[in-house]
């Protein structure tokens, strides 16, 4: 399915006055893909979404849709579905009327509209709420109406701008599952803006990471998490342990631990906490550390450690009765293939 490139973003840039919101972005979105645009606030991810949707014009570059230049097409010509931040439901219309609105615009027959609305209401699980106004609905229900309205006219692409940011954590998890299900069932291309790393990792087939208006990396969740292209990506996606490298010796700073990989030009070695463990006798790498704190988390404990050089490390330990007190001298180990230089 994910073979043909549906949307191509070619050297897209966007300036607001002198402020550069996006600089020279290139990426391709395949048909049926679930792409998350991930980044901190102000990173340009929402700007790119509005450009793809046609709600704003880029300052430079081109946008292609199925090979056609759609750069100058207005939003209505592109016909993508959009779920706005805050949902942007019509407050004076009922749930059913909200969903029917785009269909009426398309001048479909009454019977067709009624069928489709019923189908959409069913799909997002809002049966029985058809006649309610949006203000009478909970946040999660409003979210569903927005989804149903955006999907009612079967758009080829669905754009979602931080759709879950206003929901509490439990509801968010539930909505994420439903969104995954929708994506699986419909096969529509989803482009999803979020600042929540876990959300992006859990939902997407691909993630594009943005910072300061620049694309940092694009790849599958596994690729961006396991092999971050740079330090920003590494730090932004979950917790990471960073150890300074001594450029001249190719060793970890202030140790004699030699690294098997070429690390020329990089300043830090990065290891995810879940790849770090307390060293056994036969481990090749053994880094002496001091325990600063142990946080009990129920199913596991989090150890906060400090190297002799004063760098902070973290790792998770399955709970065992070992009584480790802050100040204990320990050794940590990791497999060389799980570490990467940034």
């Amino acid at each position: 399915m994910a073979s043909t490139t549906q949307i191509e973003v070619c050297s897209i840039g966007k300036k607001y006055g002198k402020f550069k919101a996006l600089g020279d972005i290139n990426l391709g979105i395949a048909e049926g893909e679930f792409l998350s645009l991930l980044g901190p606030s102000g990173s340009g991810k929402t700007t790119l979404l509005t450009l793809i949707g046609g709600y704003d014009a880029p300052s430079s570059g081109r946008l292609l849709f199925d090979g056609q230049d759609m750069t100058n097409w207005p939003a209505k010509q592109r016909g993508f579905g959009m779920v706005f931040q805050g949902y942007a439901l019509f407050p004076h219309l009922t749930v059913a009327e909200n969903i029917a609105f785009p269909l009426k615009v398309q001048k479909r027959s009454k019977a067709q509209i009624a069928d489709r609305v019923a189908q959409m209401v069913e799909m997002v699980g809002l049966s029985g709420h058809e006649a309610k106004k949006p203000t009478a609905l909970s946040g999660g229900q409003q979210q569903r109406v927005a989804l149903a309205r955006a999907l009612a006219y079967e758009p080829k692409v669905l754009l979602l701008d931080e759709p879950f940011s206003a929901l509490d954590k439990n509801l968010r998890g539930q909505m994420q599952e439903e969104l995954r299900r929708l994506h699986r069932d419909l096969g529509t291309t989803f482009v999803f803006v979020t600042h929540d790393q876990e959300e992006a990792l859990a939902l997407s087939t691909h993630i594009a990471i943005f910072n300061h208006g620049e694309l940092q990396q694009i790849g599958t969740p596994e690729e961006v998490y396991e092999r971050p292209a740079n330090r920003f990506t590494a730090e932004f996606l979950g917790d990471i342990n960073l150890l300074s490298l001594d450029g001249s010796t190719g060793c970890l700073a202030e140790t004699a631990i030699e690294l098997p990989k070429t690390i020329a030009g990089q300043s830090h070695l990065a290891i995810r906490p879940e790849h770090m463990r307390l060293a056994a006798d036969d481990d090749a790498i053994q880094l002496p550390v001091r325990l600063r704190d142990r946080v009990y988390l129920g199913s596991k404990s989090r150890l906060l450690l400090e190297t002799s050089g004063g760098e902070e490390l973290m790792l998770y330990l399955d709970n065992d009765p070992t009584d480790m007190r802050p100040g204990s001298e320990l050794r940590v180990a990791w497999d060389a293939r799980d570490s990467f230089a940034v």
Binding site: F80, F84, F90
Partner: peptide, 14 residues
Amino acid sequence: VDERVLTAADGMGA
């Protein structure tokens, strides 16, 4: 009036 609602309507082709 929430501007986004108008944008949404416009995007749907109204």
